[in-house]
Design a binder for these strands. Structure first.
Lengths: 402, 402
DNA sequence: GATAATTATTTCCTTGCTCGAACAATAGCG
DNA sequence: CGCTATTGTTCGAGCAAGGAAATAATTATC
């Protein structure tokens, strides 16, 4: 029963479903233009997918009055009965959830305040599984076919293992298998910065060509690196732990245990902590400050608080150094700075640009376009859902039946 | 006359010639095993190449008595009349040359002492062209079909332009075109660290799988990064300028104009200069010290000179930091440390390992195998020759006629 | 309302790559 | 002198992909 498709066919199928999910319902000719294939080949491919019930032809009448003459386009879209996918992001004390149908359309979302760190491995997985299934039940709708989960730390995507995560307090945690066991659905896990990089690149075609290094600033600092729109995978199929590169030998404390890591200057918890220290207040108990608390710090700095301005100046400098390292190492076409940390980009920018300029070769620096993408963490779930959907693509017909 | 091969055929041809050059004469079945193709397909491919005169069948008798039964293997090899390729490396005050036949066998080599920095663009290219053609004449033998040149700096391989090189004192120098014009032969240029990485990986199959970051220490410090045996290419098809990543904000002067770059601690010129300064001698006039001078410094340190030991300790620390950044950014399977600078590896190693350990996550660090490959600069010409040969592979038949 | 124009899709055919199966060639071995 | 092991060749099938032309489905225009 398991129909094994030949490799080229399979790759073509993937590309087709990718473009259809990204660009919405498309006619066969349009798919052909996107993929650089002849309409004949597209017809051939789509025939199989229509046959399997993965795709459906759009009803003729629902596009309203047609203004061009000629035979009207028949757009193809994902079948509505393919089921849904849940995307999850686990922060330090928050879980973001999102339900998406197989075409990539958002159906429901929620976020839950819940500290995860103190839990052991089994409890952690229990809590996650329960949160996810509650969300699925509340959302109702079509059955959930797969789960994608983004989390901080060094994630082995292929084997579904969180190899290292200071936030989850985990080492070699077989998270995908554990959740799969509890939920009875396939689970894909991914580093959160990689997921965000992927999601952002889905929205901007320019970022899908060439090499894109995506620095996410938020609870921590992470890097997602894309080559021709695909996530770069290292030796253990994870992303990098760029946030824990040590840039100042005797810098502030990082939650990884080291000192002077990039994120020890830029992450929300670091900025919040150092802001408290400036005011001679005790270091805060909550490691992850609220959005309001962060906004307050930024506002105070914008009002002219010199000590805080200094803090952001130094953070910007570290960001510039980090971007400089990426430029001199990876020779990227695009540098994207994203995540909640971009809320203070106006404060970071002067020192960021100065640092970047002082340590990169102009010939290399000028190749890389700097993009600042203001993005909250909920886009993350979008990214990891995309990943899960792509993983499913080859099994859609089978999953439909299940 | 220009026979355009379809893309898959072309790729298959490349792979076949690659493996034949690397593994020496091979029978069709053996090629099939290396490439994972059926003998039938290999026969089909080689038929064309034999027809064009690119390959020849080995004479039957010259393997001596056959000890296995069955139809004897007929090994295929590159035709001997395909001509040669010259590989060149330009150092600060030295030019290395090497003549190689199309099968990759070394035929002659030479090195010339010649400072290149003070020359202008035109003079530089004149000198190089003259040196190359003199070498070709002296070496005699089959006609030279192409030239591969490795040089320091940021090299755009696709367009053949040296975008930036403090050693050559060049900016946007169209070196490949200039030499092509003077020599009438196709010229391929490459960053020297990339060329060395490629050459080293040709010798060790392990380095051709997964991701290999190759740090070359010598006149300067460079990085060659390989993914599945192929050189990583950035936005402008060059490698990186990793040697000019600034690791210490107020470190020693670098020849790029900045301060605290990786190579300002590790390159021969930097170690030599700082050794002179320790002895309160004036900074040396010659920027690139001789091999003897470097050996003397190393010997003096090994004898217990504390100031020099300190110098190497600090250099090792920077090397560890550099490797740490690579590990946390690229998640490589292999880190190779190579080049003349490995002569002092015993002095660098303790602080190298301490620094590496103190700033990398164990889960990531343990993935990467550290290789120290003692290699002088002449292996470089090998690497760039390989590149040039590969560039030629599609035109071999045409070049044979020319 | 008939006809022309236009666009989408399908059908059919060709090309090119790869592989499996059958077959030829060759040499050791009993 | 068969038998067997191994290599290499030939031929045909299968498959992907593209192009030409036929077909289908509309709308604009007269």
């Amino acid at each position: 029963m398991a129909i094994t498709l030949p490799a080229p066919r399979e790759a073509a199928r993937r590309r087709l479903l990718d473009v259809l999910r990204r660009e919405g319902p498309l006619a066969r000719v349009e798919i052909g233009q996107h993929l650089g294939m002849s309409p004949a080949s597209v017809s051939d491919l789509t025939a199989g997918l229509l046959d399997e019930g993965v795709l459906v032809s759009e009803e003729a009448g629902d596009t309203g009055p047609v203004l061009i003459r000629g035979r009207p386009k028949v757009r193809l879209s994902f079948a509505s009965d393919l089921g849904c996918v849940i995307g999850v992001w686990t922060g330090f004390n928050r879980i973001e959830l999102r339900l998406v149908d197989s075409a990539g359309r958002n159906q429901a979302s929620r976020h839950v305040e819940r500290p995860l760190r103190s839990l052991g491995a089994e409890d952690l997985m229990d809590v996650l599984a329960e949160t996810i299934s509650t969300f699925a039940q509340d959302a109702g709708g079509p059955p959930v076919k797969a789960i994608g989960l983004a989390c901080q730390g060094y994630v082995d995507t292929r084997d579904g293992v969180v190899a290292w995560s200071p936030v989850l307090g985990a080492r070699d945690l077989p998270l995908a298998a554990g959740l799969n066991q509890r939920l009875g659905r396939p689970v894909v896990i991914e580093n959160d910065a990689s997921a965000m990089a992927f999601a952002i690149a889905q929205r901007d075609p320019a970022l899908r060509s060439g090499r894109t290094a995506c620095l996410m600033i938020g609870d921590g600092v992470g890097l997602g690196f894309l080559v021709q729109g695909e996530l770069y995978r290292g030796a253990r199929s994870g992303g990098s732990e760029f946030g824990h590169v040590r840039l100042r030998r005797s810098g502030p404390q990082c939650r990884c245990g080291g000192r002077g890591c990039i994120e020890a200057f830029l992450a929300d918890y670091a900025l919040h902590r150092d802001a408290q220290l400036i005011d001679h207040r005790p270091a805060p108990a909550v490691l992850i400050p609220s959005e309001d608390a962060m906004n307050a710090i930024v506002a105070q700095a914008r009002a002219g608080d010199t000590a805080l301005l200094n803090l952001f100046r130094e953070a910007g400098e570290v960001l510039g150094d980090a971007a400089g390292i990426l430029i001199q190492t990876l020779e990227p076409d695009h540098i994207v700075i994203c995540g909640p940390g971009t809320r203070a980009m106006d404060l970071l920018r002067p020192s960021f640009e100065a640092a970047l300029e002082s340590q990169t070769i102009p010939e290399l620096r000028s190749l890389a376009t700097i993009h600042v993408v203001e993005s909250s963490m909920d886009i993350l779930t979008e990214g990891v859902v995309m990943q899960a959907l792509r993983e499913m693509d080859l099994d859609l017909a089978r999953l439909k039946a299940a």
